[in-house]
């Protein structure tokens, strides 16, 4: 080890105030004769003065440090609410535009199907003109996809119409309920009415089977000796 190499170690010892007197003497003598080591010693002296307090003993963390830390701790602990993630979602204009487009498309599709849906309307099944002097025969027809054990068909008449029947109690009633079975296929419930006075009268029927209510509306328009009948099938609905 030459003198200059030894100086590096001795200067380090001097920085730590750990220099023996004999070493201090060597340092002084060598530095007086060697420009490089003299400069080294001077630089080390300047550095030693700067080391103490180069950073403050206590330093405040930067603004927002605590908030960022809390966010990260919440992420790690899994205790963040779903809305806590909202601020973290940042969209670029392109993504935002795409999202808005998709939203509009979804709304348009829903709207199209909603407004284009054919809302069920009464369906005219039959229409005819007959004389008021003879009873009017009406057939209610129901299609059953399989046989049904218990079916009730109720017929309600307006005051200007009456049942045509040999049975006085039937003829006198305004409402009649037929009960029975439906076979698989078309089932017919026939009945007869007479129009007693001029006017516009209605006959309402309903039959409950297969989880649905099936209704008919029959209008009778009587003027003089003729009556015009129109039978409508109303949209069925769940019961």
């Amino acid at each position: 080890m030459n003198g200059c190499d030894k100086m590096t170690r001795l200067i380090a010892a001097a920085m730590g105030r750990d220099l023996e007197p004999v070493e201090a003497q060597f340092l002084k003598e060598h530095a007086a004769a060697c420009t490089e080591c003299r400069e080294h010693l001077a630089a080390a002296g300047a550095v030693t003065g700067m080391l103490k307090g180069l950073v403050p003993a206590e330093a405040d963390t930067p603004l927002g440090f605590g908030d960022r830390l809390r966010d990260r701790l919440m992420d790690r602990s899994g205790c963040r609410n779903w809305y806590g993630y909202l601020p973290a979602i940042r969209f670029r204009p392109m993504e935002l535009g795409l999202l808005a487009g998709l939203l509009l498309l979804a709304l348009g599709t829903v709207g199209f199907f909603y407004f284009n849906e054919e809302h069920p309307q009464p369906l005219l099944l039959t229409s005819k003109e007959v004389s008021t002097e003879t009873p009017l025969s009406i057939d209610l027809e129901y299609l059953a996809v399989h046989s049904i054990g218990e079916v009730a068909v109720t017929i309600e008449l307006d005051e200007g119409v009456k049942f045509h029947s040999d049975y006085a109690e039937v003829a006198a009633a305004r409402t009649h309920t037929w009960t029975g079975r439906f076979a698989e296929g078309m089932n017919s419930i026939p009945f007869m009415v007479t129009v007693e006075k001029p006017g516009v009268w209605q006959i309402k029927t309903r039959a409950d089977f297969g989880g649905w209510r099936h209704e008919h509306l029959i209008t009778l328009t009587s003027a003089g000796k003729m009556v015009t009948m129109a039978m409508y099938q109303l949209p069925k609905h769940r019961i």
């Binding site: 590096t8 380090a12 490089e36 080294h40 630089a43």
Partner: peptide, 12 residues
């Protein structure tokens, strides 16, 4: 100390 020796000009 070694590093200071190499960069001593910064501190003179």
């Amino acid at each position: 100390s070694e590093l200071i020796r190499k960069r001593r000009s910064h501190f003179l």
